[in-house]
């Protein structure tokens, strides 16, 4: 009972990871070197994946690491080769100061909106226990949902990926 108000281990890990994610995001847009940005993006993605694990979304976390860290970050690192002056390549345009105003307002309003909402009282049932049954084995459930309820969306997502693939090829095809 004494320790009831103390944060649990999950909470501590969450706060650390959250802090790490925010710092990583800020660092992406503030370092001068684009290559460093790419590496920081990969790290941030890993920390987001850890957040997914903490939020009981194991499968999404794994996907996150596979897609973002494994594929996207590598692609971006590859694209960095196009940059000429890598150490000073991450400069900003003339909107840098002006954009702070709407960004701040946006963030404040979102924070107000989230804070003003009473999230707990909207639901009366205790969802901790039954949730676990599904969450624990969510990979199989996700697979079943993908080929049942979300079948159309799943196919469309595949189509979009195919279109992106063909589009990228068409864009980079050698002329003639």
């Amino acid at each position: 009972m004494v320790f009831a108000d103390l944060p649990t281990l999950v909470d501590i890990v969450f706060w650390i990871i959250a802090l790490f994610t925010v710092c990583g995001s800020v660092a992406i847009i503030s370092v001068n070197n684009v290559f460093k940005s790419a590496v920081l993006l990969a790290l941030t993605m890993v920390s987001v994946a850890i957040l997914y694990f903490l939020l009981s979304a194991d499968f999404i976390g794994v996907i996150q690491i596979l897609v973002y860290v494994g594929a996207v970050s590598v692609l971006i690192a590859f694209a960095v080769m196009l940059v000429k002056d890598v150490p000073r390549s991450n400069s900003a345009n003339n909107l840098i100061n002006l954009s702070i105003i709407p960004s701040t307002i946006f963030l404040v309003i979102i924070a107000f909106a989230i804070g003003a909402e009473n999230w707990i009282t909207k639901t009366t049932i205790n969802y901790e226990e039954p949730l676990n049954e599904i969450v624990v084995s969510n990979v199989s459930w996700i697979g079943e949902l993908l080929i049942r309820e979300y079948f159309i969306s799943f196919q469309i997502a595949g189509l979009i990926l195919l279109a992106a693939l063909i589009g990228a090829l068409a864009l980079l095809r050698r002329e003639g």
Binding site: Y52, A57, Q64, Y68, V72, L82, A164, G167, L172
Partner: peptide, 22 residues
């Protein structure tokens, strides 16, 4: 979770196209 799956899928497609454009 399903939403997140699709978000990641679209994000990957978007990155591929964006890099081709770049």
């Amino acid at each position: 979770h399903m939403m997140a799956v699709f978000v990641i899928a679209i994000g990957a497609a978007e990155v591929a196209l964006a890099l081709a454009l770049i």
